[in-house]
Computed example of a mutant assay.
Amino acid sequence: MSHIHRFSRSLGLLLALCLLTAVLTPPVFAAPREGLLVVAFGTSVPEAMPAFRALDTAFRAEFPGMPLEWAYTSQRIRKKLARQGKPVGGISDGLAALARKGVNIVRVQSLHVMAGEEFSALERAVLLDIKAHPGRFQAVYLGRPLLESRRDAEDVAAAVLGGMAARREGGDGLVLMGHGQEHGRADLVLEGMRATLADADPLTVIASVEGSRDLDDLVHDLRARQLKTVWLQPFMVVAGDHARNDLAGPEADSWASRLRREGFEVRANLVGLGEIPGVRAVFVRHAREAHDDLCKEPVKQ
Results as ranks from 00 to 15, higher is better:
Ala58Ile: 02
Glu154Phe: 10
Arg124Met: 13
Ala82Asp: 15
Tyr72Gly: 01
Trp70Asn: 03
Glu62Phe: 08
Met114Phe: 15
Arg60Thr: 08
Lys101Cys: 05
Ser92Ile: 00
Lys86Trp: 12
Ser149Arg: 08
Ala158Leu: 06
Gly85Val: 07
Phe119Arg: 02
Leu55His: 02
Gln109Gly: 02
Ala96Arg: 14
Pro67Ser: 07
Gly89Pro: 04
Leu95Pro: 01
Val103Asn: 03
Arg107Lys: 13
Ser110Gly: 07
Gln109Pro: 04
Ala99Asp: 07
Leu146Gly: 01
Pro64Arg: 05
Val156Asn: 07
Gln109Cys: 03
Pro145Val: 02
Ala157Gly: 12
Gly85Glu: 08
Glu62Pro: 00
Ala139Tyr: 06
Arg83Lys: 15
Gly102Ile: 05
Tyr72Met: 06
Lys101His: 14
Leu142Val: 01
Ala54Leu: 15
Ala125Asp: 14
Pro64Trp: 12
Arg150Tyr: 10
Ile91Gln: 03
Phe137Gln: 04
Phe137Asn: 06
Leu95Trp: 03
Asp93Gln: 08
Asp56Glu: 13
Ala99Glu: 11
Ser120Asn: 14
Phe59Ile: 03
Ala71Thr: 02
Gly90His: 07
Leu81Thr: 05
Glu154Asn: 10
Ala71Gly: 02
Arg151Ile: 11
Arg107Trp: 14
Ala54Asn: 11
Gln75Ala: 15
Glu154Val: 14
Asn104Gly: 08
Ala82Tyr: 09
Pro134Gln: 04
Val108Leu: 06
Glu117Ala: 15
Ala96Glu: 14
Gln138Asn: 13
Glu123Thr: 10
Leu147Phe: 14
Arg124Val: 12
Leu128Glu: 14
Tyr141Gly: 00
Ala61Lys: 13
Leu95Ser: 02
His112Ser: 10
Arg100Ser: 12
Gln84Trp: 12
His112Pro: 00
Gly94Asn: 09
Leu95Ile: 02
Ala71Leu: 04
Lys86Cys: 00
Glu118Ala: 10
Ile77Cys: 09
Gly94Asp: 11
Ile130Pro: 03
Ala99Cys: 03
Met66Cys: 11
Pro87Leu: 11
Arg83Trp: 09
Pro67Ala: 08
Gly94Met: 10
Arg136Gln: 15
